[in-house]
Simulated scan of single mutants.
Amino acid sequence: MSPDPLRFLRCPVCGEPLSGVETEGARALRCPRGHSFDLARQGYVNLLAGRAPHTGDSPGMVTAREEFLGAGHYDLVSAALAAAATGSSATETSAAESDSADATYPRLVVDAGAGTGWHLAAVLDAIPDAVGLALDVSKPALRRAARAHPRAAAALCDTWQTLPLADASTTLLLNVFAPRNGPEFRRVLRPDGLLLVVTPAADHLTELVEQLDLLRVDPTKSDRVAGSLGDGFDLVGRSRHIRRMRLRRAEVATLVGMGPSAWHIAPARLAARIEALPEPVDVTAAVELGVYRPR
């Protein structure tokens, strides 16, 4: 695990700082009170305090997702995040900041619900002096996220619970098609930090909704997202991003599996409907990016 993100981590049991230890060849993170958390040989650290209510994406889902992202279908999301990140004052160091004690620490970019770390890596490429941390509950996803970027680390945690991060430690927090924990997001963000939330727009995957009987995006979703963050944030910007994707049936199956509809349709019925689609099929990707600042 990269030593730079390590300094921002906190013990999920007591909240004390964590440091790396090595005993008889085994590596772990340990706090002053003796709570210890193993570093997996794939590079991520397990910071779950107890059992998670779910295990996240399976190995097969993670492989398919990485292939889909690698084909560039969701590059519009990465590009939108990178543009918003580099256009924010949170990613700029003022003269006053450079003289402060905090200037000795790199800026931290956290992706809550990071999956394989694909979007986090794109943002880190755009901010050369930042370090990143991928948080997810899926071990197969974190095995890839730990290798997604040389300046990124990865930690297993349930983002619905207390995040294993110090107060006001995070400069930029990403949340892409993932659950939102408003109080914790507010706690870990610096006062000058930024929260970037990506959600599907009303016409996202519109060509597939009727043919595959997918869940429809609530037209009031943007307002619900803002409400889910509580009273700790102000919406300071919102943008819409759209592109046309030309997908094979296997890619359609992966795309549907990446969203909530996968849990609401019987697999056999979904497979039959996908098989009846033309190949390739043109599909609209439409997302909204909300930019929030802590109050």
Rank of each mutant, 00 (worst) to 15 (best):
116 T>G: 15
133 L>I: 03
248 R>Y: 00
196 L>V: 07
267 P>L: 09
22 E>N: 00
176 V>A: 09
62 V>N: 07
238 R>Y: 06
52 A>E: 06
213 D>H: 15
279 E>N: 10
124 L>F: 05
102 D>C: 11
248 R>C: 11
278 P>E: 06
189 L>R: 11
165 L>W: 12
65 R>H: 08
42 Q>F: 06
7 R>H: 06
51 R>G: 14
140 P>L: 10
180 R>H: 00
119 H>C: 07
260 P>W: 09
33 R>P: 00
175 N>F: 03
87 G>K: 03
226 A>G: 12
102 D>L: 14
253 A>V: 08
116 T>E: 15
123 V>M: 07
223 D>Q: 13
132 G>D: 09
69 L>W: 10
203 D>Y: 07
173 L>E: 02
277 L>C: 09
249 R>W: 02
267 P>G: 00
62 V>W: 09
51 R>D: 14
161 Q>M: 13
134 A>D: 06
270 L>H: 02
108 L>R: 07
66 E>D: 15
250 A>T: 04
19 S>A: 15
247 L>V: 13
66 E>W: 08
32 P>K: 13
67 E>L: 15
270 L>R: 12
67 E>R: 15
163 L>R: 08
77 V>S: 14
224 R>C: 06
20 G>R: 15
54 H>C: 06
229 L>I: 01
204 H>E: 11
188 V>H: 09
87 G>P: 00
135 L>C: 05
165 L>G: 02
185 F>E: 02
205 L>W: 09
268 A>Y: 01
170 T>F: 08
80 A>S: 09
192 D>L: 09
190 R>C: 03
41 R>K: 12
247 L>Y: 13
204 H>Q: 12
90 A>N: 11
112 A>D: 05
121 A>E: 13
142 L>N: 08
245 M>E: 12
262 A>S: 13
18 L>A: 07
70 G>N: 05
56 G>Y: 03
170 T>Y: 10
144 R>G: 01
186 R>Q: 14
